[in-house]
């Protein structure tokens, strides 16, 4: 006749103990991830620090004289590449995001474009390399030039820029647009003078992260044939080139130990460019979240 189960035992102490164990396990996963990052950076630095010097930045790669090898051609190639990639991908990416978020009517075409961009973001970088090889090298006859490399990388990071820029536009409240329309502004006037200024910091974060991804890409550049031994600095967009990740790959592939150390030094130079870019992007985001113009 007992309706109430008198044997009810919450066993709270036991459950809490398991809970602590679980919390500890989750926290240690985070610690493990951070620890792995530390090991990675230290093991690279350990290999490469001896070769890091101003001469390393100012010398050309050399097979006969590895002691005097440097990354000048790769460094300049990478700077050319990033400059051209930014010049092509940033305006197009931002414009596409503005169209999709501010202009496009919610129809089938818009949905198709959006779906298409989401899927492009998941296409492996090497497939973009195949595209670049067939279109820019064979079809357009650009040769193994900086321009061909930059166009390939632009296609690669375009979806990333569009998605990030759209998110930044979506974070701008509608009241700002409505207020501008209410005062008789046209759509472009609204976008240019009110929506864009509010969205630019968020867009910048996405753009910088996308460019830093392009900076580290090697696979698409190898596809279009950038893996050549080059001891000069490109002087125009149609010159052949090499880039930091390519030069690093080249050195890793050499059997001698000294080249492995050079690769380590090259990685330190590359990370020395990448990590500050990431830090700036994250910094802009944090700063922007703290002082949004509209809240």
């Amino acid at each position: 006749m007992t309706l109430v189960n008198t044997n009810f035992e919450p066993r709270l102490a036991h459950r809490r103990r398991i809970g602590w164990f679980f919390a500890f396990a989750c926290a240690s996963m985070v610690v493990l991830a951070v620890f792995v990052l530390g090991v990675l950076l230290i093991s690279v630095a350990d290999q490469g620090w001896r070769w890091l010097s101003l001469d390393f930045l100012d010398n050309f790669p050399s097979r006969l004289n590895p002691e005097k090898a440097g990354v000048k051609s790769a460094l300049f190639g990478t700077l050319w590449l990033i400059g051209l990639t930014a010049a092509v991908s940033v305006p197009i990416g931002m414009a596409a995001a503005i169209y999709l978020h501010e202009y496009a009517a919610k129809g089938k075409l818009t949905r198709f474009i959006e779906l298409n961009i989401a899927n492009l973001a998941g296409v492996p970088s090497i497939v973009y390399g195949i595209l670049g090889l067939a279109v820019f090298i064979r079809l357009c006859g650009l040769g193994r030039s900086v321009l061909a490399g930059a166009l390939t990388l632009s296609l690669l990071i375009l979806p990333v820029i569009i998605i990030a820029s759209r998110e930044a536009l979506a974070a701008v409240p509608d009241s700002i647009r409505l207020a501008a329309f209410g005062l008789g502004a046209t759509r472009w006037q609204t976008v240019r003078s009110h929506v864009l200024p509010a969205a630019i910091p968020g867009m910048m974060t996405g753009v910088i992260l996308a460019l830093s991804r392009a900076l580290g890409e090697a696979a698409p550049l190898i596809m279009i044939g950038a893996l050549t031994f080059i001891t000069f600095v490109p002087e125009g967009p149609l010159d052949t080139f090499t880039a930091m990740p390519i030069q690093i790959y080249n050195w890793i592939d050499e059997p001698d130990l000294i080249f492995q150390e050079l690769a380590g030094a090259g990685i330190l130079v590359l990370l020395g460019m990448l990590l500050p870019m990431n830090a700036v992007a994250v910094g802009i985001r944090a700063w922007h979240q703290r002082r949004k113009a509209w809240s």
Partner: peptide, 20 residues
């Protein structure tokens, strides 16, 4: 910090695999 892991170029991970 976790995002840094995603930002490291993949050729660096290859190096890490071979050397460490």
């Amino acid at each position: 910090i976790l995002e840094i892991l995603a930002g490291i170029p993949t050729v660096v991970y290859g190096y890490f695999a071979l050397m460490f």
